[in-house]
Amino acid sequence: MTLATELSAPPGARLAIDKVSKWFETSRGRVHALDDISLQVSEREFVCLVGPSGCGKSTLLNMIAGLEMPDQGSVVTAGQPVKGPSRERMMMFQESALFPWLDAFGNVMFSLKRKPGLSEPERREVAEYYLRLVGLEKFMHANIHELSGGMKQRVALARALAPNPRVLLMDEPFAALDALTREQLYGDLQRIWAQRHVTIVFVTHNVREAVSLGDRVVLFSPHPGRIREEFRIDLPRPRDINSVEVAGYATRITRALKDRMEHGAGI
């Protein structure tokens, strides 16, 4: 592997989720988390999973990541069944999950250290490239606690992108940020996605966020988690979360969401 291929956009990966069901054992008994989920994500697509908490969307993300296994059904990426975590599918969490014992650069290096075929100087170059990509070249050696919430998520994004994954899984990555920072990051994420073109599965409960980011918005309903409806978002990019078009789509989806909550599985 050379540095050029390492830094070029990766081949996208198709994602096929086929009839996946999942149960959890809790202190209150067996909980049906996901019921018969089937979802296709095409190469380089940006898909947002939306639903109220408890609809199993994070669980589905964990199963795509390989952190959890489905009880029934299968998850296949790029033709390969998911058997465990892999650098092909990187994940970002709501908490940045950055390691406080490393600086920003060290955190990005961590995800490269385990990647074979790169020399140490090449790894450093790759790490620097991604920190520049997220606009943090001035904060390479900052300690994690010195960074703002938005900067932490940028480092987390750089860390997730660094091994050049084909799929990026994002679990409410911007939920804990203030509105202004969040809007900045929407812009950055769209720019970076246009540049890197990875397949993205993005979990959120914020409908507007989903509309302004996704090619497609998949609506989940809870207890058990099921896919209710899908919406294709045909809006030009980059999108502004405050635009009328985004608001229009969001209103429609929110109405569908409320409908499902009232008439769907009882809450």
């Binding site: 952190l67 975590p85 892999s86 650098r87 990187m90 969490f93 999950a97 390691f99 961590f110 995800s111």
Partner: peptide, 14 residues
């Protein structure tokens, strides 16, 4: 130890 560190590390191949 925050379990999310371990999960993040696992996705990074550790």
């Amino acid at each position: 130890v925050n379990p999310i560190y371990v999960r993040a590390a696992r996705t990074m191949g550790s």
